[in-house]
Write a protein that binds this DNA or RNA. Structure first.
Length: 549
RNA sequence: GGCCCGUUGGUCAAGAGGCCUAAGACACCGCCCUUUCACGGCGGUAACACGAGUUCGAAUCUCGUACGGGUCACCA
């Protein structure tokens, strides 16, 4: 035993505290029964990934539903992969999506809470303290194996068809004597600290995953690395210590971690910690050449959450869509509670899919339309201009040149009892309303097949004479109906349908002619409103242009 | 390859041995409404991976096969 204490001091001479110090520093949280303490622990290796957003959402809503705490912790123990500005990108990204953070990094720069620091690179002493304790107890040891040696070991195992890894008799450094270790250290050989795993592959470890259910796996017997040669912990070790000290009750993370759970459970037990509840979230998938695969940062633009901002999706829409994936009963709830915030939804982990869902951009569009159609013209104006300011400067200046006009454009078929459901994302707006802005107006004056050019011209001439900008919808259409018979068109559609041979067409066809003259399109929102917004002079100009054309 | 997990219409999914002649949503198609388009209403096409077994009875339980996914680092 004293050998172990000597070893501990030799390996980690600068560590003077003991685990008790930290146990006292971070007392249990004072939370009501049933409150769940959850977290996301992203590593700052790039921009905010859709999967991280999804995990954050699930954690957030779990904390909210249970009256618990949602915190963030930065897992920056791999300095090689670290990206500058990575923390800001992730945390600020979450904020932009309305994911509120109770504790930890609440912005790119600020941390909040009594269980910090919330950045693993600032917690080295804590991990080393626990590692030292493990060494003292003979549960961890130094390993001097080089990458080459480890590679050779692996090759040997593969050749002999033996399970690979640093376990059992393959764990050479387990047997090193104190003298050998001393000599190695004096030679300046780098070393890692490994767990002396008490596990046996023959035994089973069973745990109940809150999402996936009961899972049974062989016990861990690998002497995996606790502390890397730079004294920084691996994920596994940091996870056990941080989630214990931060009193996480539910570890909800991507399901790529499932296979490591035996390691984690073993660590928690060895360290004398209470094992948290695990919930492994299935990844969001993507169809690639007919094959399903996890959505990838490298291959899929939509993996980066920034993509949605560029396209002009509302963050609410993305969240709403993610909720439909997260909870199979969410859509039913939404129908019953159309006006509530998703935050009021009672989230149940059991309603999460066990297998990964394919990302469905078409469904997102639909969800998005349902949200946008509830906005009024002022809100749309504000959102579109905010979007354009960042992603379409030209459109921005056009929109803001005459804000009142722009707002009246967005009011068309919107500030009415039954708003139109058309726009899903802001980058569609320019094209959708192009005819409302002279800069983008490129008319296609092709007439429908059933209307002759002469009739169209004649109609426009007659209409021009009676057109008044003050006409309401009723009056507006009445004028078209009044002209119809003069051109052998039916005033009423029913009239035409009852006796199609008696007419060239019906008033609807003529309104299409007018629509084409005014907008250069065959399909638009309410034409009467469009003409009112465009104004008399502009409409007249366009009608005359169409007559000439 | 070892170890885990999964497989219900094109997609998301409900489903916990008889309520399944298998719900709903998106997409698609048709009809109605309608000045176009959209909205809305009504209707339609379309699924339990396969094979054994247990059972009076299986989408649901068991086993096997196939396929898909994850994981096997001093990365997280």
């Amino acid at each position: 035993m004293s050998q172990n204490i000597l070893l501990a001091d030799l390996l980690l001479p600068n560590i003077e505290k003991t685990p008790d110090y930290y146990e006292n520093l971070y007392p249990a949280r004072n939370l009501p029964e049933g409150a769940r303490v959850v977290r996301i622990a992203p590593s700052p290796t790039g921009y905010l990934h859709l999967g991280v957003l999804f995990a954050a959402l699930v954690n957030r809503i779990t904390a909210t539903t249970s009256g618990g705490v949602f915190f963030t912790r930065i897992e920056d123990t791999d300095k090689k992969r670290e990206v500058k500005g990575g923390i800001e990108d992730i945390i600020d990204g979450l904020n932009r999506f309305g994911i509120t953070i109770d504790e930890g990094f609440i912005s790119g720069k600020e941390q909040k809470g009594n269980y910090g620091p919330y950045q693993q690179s600032h917690r080295a002493e804590i991990y080393q303290t626990y590692a030292k304790e493990l060494i003292r107890q003979g549960l961890a040891y130094p390993c001097f194996c080089t990458a080459e040696e480890l590679g050779a070991l692996r090759d040997e195992q593969e050749a002999g068809k033996i399970r690979t890894g640093y376990h059992g008799e393959w764990a050479k450094c387990r047997e090193l004597s104190l003298e050998q270790i001393k000599a190695n250290i004096e030679e300046g050989k780098p070393f890692v600290i490994r767990l002396k795993s008490p596990g046996n592959e023959e035994n089973k470890v069973i745990f109940d995953d809150a999402i996936k259910g009961k899972i049974e796996m062989p016990e861990n017997d690998e002497d995996f690395v606790l502390l890397k040669s730079d004294g920084i912990p691996t994920y596994h070790f940091a996870h056990a210590i941080d989630d214990h000290l931060m009193h996480t009750t539910h570890v909800m993370r991507g399901d790529e971690w499932i296979s490591s759970v035996p390691k984690h459970i073993q660590l928690f037990k060895i360290l004398g910690f209470k094992v948290p509840k695990f919930a492994h979230i299935s990844p969001i998938m993507k169809l690639d050449n007919g094959a399903k695969r996890k959505i990838s940062k490298r291959k899929d633009p939509e993996a980066a959450v920034h993509f949605f901002a560029e396209q002009g999706y509302m963050s609410e829409a993305v969240i709403e869509y993610l909720m439909t994936i997260a909870a199979s009963d969410f859509e039913d709830w939404r129908r019953a509670n159309p006006d509530k915030s998703y935050k009021d939804f009672k989230f149940n982990l059991k309603k999460m899919s066990v297998s990964g869902a394919l990302f469905d951009g078409v469904k997102l569009l639909d969800v998005s339309k349902n949200i946008v159609c509830r906005l009024n013209s002022i809100e749309v104006y504000n959102f579109v201009t905010a979007w354009a300011k960042e992603f379409d400067k030209e459109f921005y200046s056009i929109l803001t040149k005459n804000p009142e006009y722009s707002k009246s454009v967005f009011a068309i078929d919107r500030d009415v009892p039954k708003p139109r459901k058309d726009i899903a994302k802001w980058n569609e707006v320019k094209d959708y309303f192009s005819y409302m802005f002279s800069e983008y107006y490129t008319p296609d004056l092709t007439l429908p097949e059933n209307v002759a050019k002469e009739d169209a011209v004649l109609f426009l001439e007659k209409y021009k004479a009676v057109y008044s900008p003050d006409d309401d919808r009723q009056e507006w259409f009445n004028k078209i109906k009044a002209i119809a018979p003069q051109l052998q068109f039916a005033s009423e559609t029913k009239e035409y349908k009852a006796n199609p041979d008696a007419f060239k067409g019906h008033a609807g066809d003529l309104s299409t002619v007018l629509r084409i003259a005014i907008t250069g399109r065959r399909n638009t929102p309410d034409l009467c409103s469009i003409m009112q917004v465009l104004g008399y002079d502009e409409c007249l100009k366009r009608i005359e242009n169409a007559i000439r054309g």
